[in-house]
Nucleic acid binder design. Structure first.
Length: 547
RNA sequence: GCGCCCAUAGCUCAGUUGGAUAGAGCAGCAGCCUUCUAAGCUGCUGGCCGCAGGUUCGAAUCCUGCUGGGCGCGCCA
């Protein structure tokens, strides 16, 4: 937001030097002291085409900048950077602007009037969510929040299939356990059946509340009943876990509806009309090689059942038909192979696949004491997301899963996560928030109210200026994280913001300072509180007022 | 064999879309509380940015080729 105060002038000065720049001027924040507050490399970027030395062009631009009350100095540095040093008045103006935003600090209207659809989690109801699902949950939900904070109208969707082979296997697994519970021990457990403890739990429940009815049923009826009970149990479990993580979907989209509404049939017919479908070996194939892929793929098996690819294409086409401006998929790296096929299919049907943004996050390794943890200590089976939440808390789960770039393999350190102290990065942020709240509460007790008209010109301490500079970057940071689909950027930003506040807190006494300074610092603290709170809300973690 | 992702301090990772002397946390060492939360702050130690070329004023960042790791490559999802 700093650049607002100099950008127009730079445009004018550059034009006067013979350099017309379309669009915004690129700015950077110098890392070294003595290089000003903002820096631009426009002279170096364009010197060549004007046939000038970068430093000469830079100096011509600098000479064209008029004197201003806000700008301390503009100078040429290094190979041709133009460094801008502001007077403190710019920072005071920024605090004023930020304060005027009320609870909207960090919000953007970059996506105002646009709609965004995001599909995440999307685990089929065949069992509880396991710990590895956590990354998809946290990344998806944080991205949804980011888009909402950028002004988009967001639809959060959970896509599931309760009709396929996996569900039949779930039903059969429960059915067999139920037979065992009812004393028929000779019924063999299916080879690819589900082995989790929850299967037995569901079977036990049915044995307890529905045994007589089940005994009356045919095997077919009993299997269907077990499947239905299993689905209900699993969905209840999944939804409970998501609520614990502060995740709420707007739509649960059933794959089966794609069949009942004819969308799958339409999709295959449309592909066939375009000559992209053929029969071979009793199966129906999608001619992906015609679309530039390595090999054709089966979309309807010789048994007559479609493979996942076909409803996936129908589903993604439907998302576009529903009219969203941006459609985001969140997948783990293990699903990467399906993406090109689905996109190729939708594109072949004449849709603009540019609206799709696919986020593929890498896998997660859980580590404790330097050793890889694969299984739950309690059950010896792969451990559930519930167990992870219980172990480290929902805030830590959400934060840890988004704090690294989605493209990198994530190491989830359970030891660090369990640490409820200074080593844990989430607490560092929440502590900053709680510390501010504590001061504001004390101020209130002293009868000191936040004064939005405070004279901010008394804020001149380097720690105050650094904190304000950090605050001023929030909105652009949120926009960048959103645009680039990078939730971890917010975690990084908030750590810097918390650090800037802790520094300010340490060096700048608020309560008890002389009245004008006290009022100004109190306002600055409150602006920081609102920024930190909003950042934590974007991450979906709690904002404790005391710790 | 093919496709995608990754490689930066002892460990885990950032690096603002190609910029200035590559940063943070943890671990290690040394300091700071009679005053608003020490879950904090300050200082020190720590680097062939996997290797080799290329592109240009300028590369951790872009291109090519290697090496090493992850995930895929089904009439499973």
């Amino acid at each position: 937001m700093m650049q607002r105060y100099i950008e127009a002038q730079l445009h004018r000065a550059a034009a006067a030097a013979g350099l017309e720049i379309d669009g915004p001027i690129p700015f950077g924040v110098p890392k070294q002291d003595g290089q000003g507050h903002l820096s631009t490399n426009i002279a170096m970027m364009h010197a060549k085409k004007l046939g000038k030395q970068p430093r000469v062009l830079a100096q011509e631009i600098v000479d064209g900048i008029e004197k201003s009350e806000l700008v301390e100095r503009v100078e040429v540095a290094g190979p041709g950077f133009i460094n801008v040093t502001f007077r403190d008045a710019v920072y005071h103006a920024m605090v004023k602007d930020l304060d005027g935003l009320g609870d909207h600090i960090g919000r953007s209207d970059a996506g105002a009037g646009r709609t965004m659809h995001i599909e995440y989690v999307s685990a089929n109801p065949t069992g509880p969510l396991h710990a590895g699902h956590g990354r998809n949950c946290a990344v998806g939900d944080t991205l949804a929040n980011l888009y909402a904070w950028c002004g988009y109208e967001v639809t959060r969707e959970y896509y599931f299939n309760n009709a396929g082979n996996q569900m039949n296997m779930l039903g059969r697994s429960i059915y067999v356990r139920l037979q065992h519970a009812l004393g028929n021990n000779d019924v063999p457990f299916p080879e690819d059946g589900y082995h989790g403890e929850y299967i037995a739990e569901i079977a036990t429940q049915i044995a307890r509340d529905h045994a007589d009815a089940v005994r009356e049923m045919s095997e077919e009826e009993a299997l269907a009943y077990c499947r239905k009970r299993g689905e209900e149990w699993c969905f209840a479990s999944i939804k409970r876990t998501l609520v614990a993580l502060n995740i709420h979907h707007d739509v649960y989209y059933n794959e089966d509806s794609l069949y009942t509404t004819g969308k799958v049939r339409d999709t295959i017919e449309d592909l066939r009309e375009r000559g992209l479908v053929y029969e071979k070996d009793g199966a129906t194939w999608f001619a992906l090689t015609q679309l530039g892929s390595q090999q054709d793929k089966v979309i309807v098996k010789s048994t007559g059942e479609p493979t996942y690819r076909l409803p996936d294409i129908a589903y993604h086409r439907d998302k576009l038909v529903r009219g969203f401006d941006v459609v985001i998929d969140v997948f783990g790296a293990d699903h990467i192979a399906t993406v090109p096929d689905v996109l190729a299919g939708v594109k072949a049907l004449g849709f603009d696949t540019e609206r799709f943004r696919v986020v593929i996050h890498q896998m997660v390794t859980f580590v404790e004491n330097g050793e890889i943890v694969k299984f739950s200590k309690r059950s010896g089976k792969s451990f559930t997301l519930d167990e992870l939440i219980e172990e480290v808390g929902a805030d830590v789960v959400r934060f840890f899963f988004i704090m690294r770039a989605v493209g990198t393999h994530l190491e989830f350190d359970l030891g660090l996560a369990k640490e409820e102290g200074d080593k844990n990065p989430v607490f560092y942020l929440q502590y900053a928030h709680a510390r501010i709240c504590s001061i504001l509460k004390k101020a209130e007790e002293k009868g000191l109210a936040i004064n939005h008209q405070s004279d901010l010109s008394v804020l001149v301490h380097p720690r105050e200026i650094e904190l304000i500079a950090q605050l001023s970057r929030m909105r652009a940071t949120v926009e960048r994280a959103c645009e680039n689909l990078e939730p971890h950027v917010i975690a990084e930003y908030l750590r810097d913001l918390a650090g800037a506040y802790h520094n300010f807190y340490h060096d700048c006494r608020i309560l008890g300072a002389e009245p004008a300074l006290e009022a100004a610092r109190l306002l600055l603290a409150d602006v920081t509180r609102r920024a930190m709170r909003n950042g934590l809300l974007i991450l979906g973690v709690t904002t404790p007022e005391r710790m």
